[in-house]
Nucleic acid binder design. Structure first.
Lengths: 349, 349
DNA sequence: TGAATTCATTTGATCGATCAAACTTTTTTT
DNA sequence: AAAAAAAGTTTGATCGATCAAATGAATTCA
């Protein structure tokens, strides 16, 4: 009376037992049709909602996944993770999963949070972002038998095929390969690349996409290719500096590809000749100033992550034998082509 | 044995009863010191973690707050909400609160989600963002006696002092007033404002900050002030268009203030004279291109939200009589001043 | 027809914690 | 020193759902 109706109330109203009500909700198949309809009617009439905590206590599963909200470092590329978070939340919702956020100050601290959330039965598994080589978090999760899927492939030597590590990643190689090809098709020959210093898992991957496409085409000798490449840390002003350097030293340049939208924005600023610039991540900035960019297709990534997390392995590999089911997903990014727009357009001559 | 230790295990190990263990965790004050220490030792040794769902079932509270993850509309200003979300999560964590995300396609759908999460005892209360005039969500929450606090004041006629509606907001008036003053102090007289069409709660508020500061100073007649104001929808290209219009029609312009960083970025693009431009929200873009901007101080907002949510009223007002405790917080934004930088710097003459 | 199966539903126990009230022990009061 | 009050601790019941096993009803088989 006082509070919300419980299974017992519904059972009473429908003239059945608690368990039947439970069955209607969890295994409708085993309940006779007319009984089921009667129960459903009672549920609707009383406005019954299952008590999530009670269910979790009994079933020992929470239907909740934990995601660490990364500290906002670079606000520009950070938006990819925000979009990813949004996609995960949306698709999780649709599957009856909840998303619980937490923060951590370091990978070690994050492991403490894993422990806390897992022990308290708050979450069934985790989604990790921003993995890096020798990541202690994945090791710990595997050792403790906790379900997880990473957005980002493992960057260790042999880890990519580790059957215990489920992951989804975006094929940066393919993104830059396509971007390079697209420029080549419009007639560009000398295509420059502004990227990050090695070793950087994602960075090296993207660079190779450009490099391979350039070699395949053969317009530029392998030696000259070195001139067309600038290595720098990420940031807008670094992009500007790199672009200036290219214009001074690299001779003719038909197009510029960048490892990030930050670099691309920077490059655009020092781009009076309006050389086509392509960024990476398709951030709001790229959209705002009309910059082509490689879109990471976070929706697909999110779908893949949830599929792996809730799928056959439930995010982890019990002693399961070989299986046809692949344990990772490689998502092909989309190249978003935009006409040159905002920045150069209104610059005074 | 099999799973994690429970209160009973700890009690056994410490030679006390379940309830004493519970007391050590929830009301340490009533347990004798030596007993408490013994229990704490047992907790540490067994690595005991309370089972969150069991506790929630019994106490009927979840220590979790629900936040809707807004659809990413304008990616640029969206980052304010992301930063807010981050601040809330971080500070909630510190208070032992969890943050549960959800999405919704419309205010009506959001109300359905409120129901679901509240009935299932998933959350104790909600934090709402992006409130608008006549918001059906707040009305529904009040009617159903559910705790909530909004980031954003109620924009209805008399709602601001509604004692049932707890809110935290940023004083846009003060942000623009300060920005105007700052420009005036550097000698600027004719300061333009690019804002949004009325009625717009936040927009009108910001505009008035500029307007009042201009009137106070009296450098520009009330008539001329109209020339210095452009009304347009939000967006980068709209900002560019507005700036061009100002340059054509408004004569001398010493500075430009904008209702958003999107508009400010647009204005910067059509700004060969390097008139100082100030944006609003202090988004990553403003930082990236070196644009002054009004920062919403999301940390303070988050702190205020949690304070109200967990404070005296617990997010709602029971029949509580008049109280000295204010039911809202007005946060004063910070003006972040940046030297002119990226965009005009490398533009070729 | 009666026994063996299958299907549908019910009952009792349980998940892990906290509440409410009972019970002990210690401290204060008279 | 006995009675009263306070402090500290324990016991039984309970939150709301699901599990496991038992019961009853409908169906199939010999």
């Amino acid at each position: 009376m006082g509070g919300f109706p419980t299974v017992t109330d519904v059972a009473l109203a429908a003239g059945v037992s608690r368990q039947t009500v439970s069955n209607v909700m969890n295994s409708p198949g085993i309940v006779r049709t007319d009984t089921r309809q009667r129960v459903e009617a009672a549920i609707a009439e009383l406005g019954y909602r299952p008590h999530a905590s009670a269910r979790r206590l009994r079933t020992r599963r929470s239907s909740t996944i934990g995601i660490r909200l990364d500290p906002v470092i670079d606000g520009i590329s950070g938006s990819v993770l925000d979009r990813f978070l949004h996609a995960v939340t949306e698709q999780a919702d649709a599957q009856g999963l909840r998303v619980l956020l937490f923060t951590a100050t370091s990978p070690e601290d994050e492991i403490i949070q894993f422990r806390r959330l897992n022990d308290g039965a708050d979450v069934d598994g985790f989604v990790l972002t921003s993995t890096f080589a020798g990541d202690p978090r994945t090791r710990w999760l595997i050792e403790n038998g906790i379900s997880f899927v990473t957005f980002g492939r493992p960057w260790g030597v042999d880890d990519m095929n580790d059957p215990q590590h489920l992951w989804v990643d975006v094929d940066g190689w393919s993104g830059l390969h396509a971007a390079t090809r697209t420029q080549q098709e419009t007639g560009a020959r000398r295509i420059a690349y502004i990227g990050w210093p090695s070793p950087s898992g994602t960075g090296d991957d993207r660079r190779r996409g450009w490099y391979d496409a350039m070699i395949e085409r053969g317009d530029v000798s392998e030696r000259d290719l070195a001139e067309l490449e600038i290595v720098t840390t990420d940031g807008v002003s670094q992009g500007t500096a790199a672009m200036q350097q290219l214009r001074q030293n690299a001779g003719q340049i038909d197009a510029v590809l960048c490892a990030s939208d930050s670099l691309a924005l920077g490059a655009m600023i020092a781009n009076p000749e309006r050389v086509p610039v392509t960024g990476y991540d398709n951030t709001p900035i790229a959209a705002a100033i009309g910059l082509s960019s490689v879109d990471q297709a976070v929706d697909e990534v999110a779908a893949g992550v949830l599929e792996l997390l809730t799928g056959e392995f439930g995010g982890k590999v019990h002693g399961a034998p070989e299986s046809a089911e692949p344990r990772h997903r490689m998502v092909t990014p989309r190249l978003v082509v935009r006409e040159f727009a905002a920045i150069p357009m209104d610059v005074p001559r």
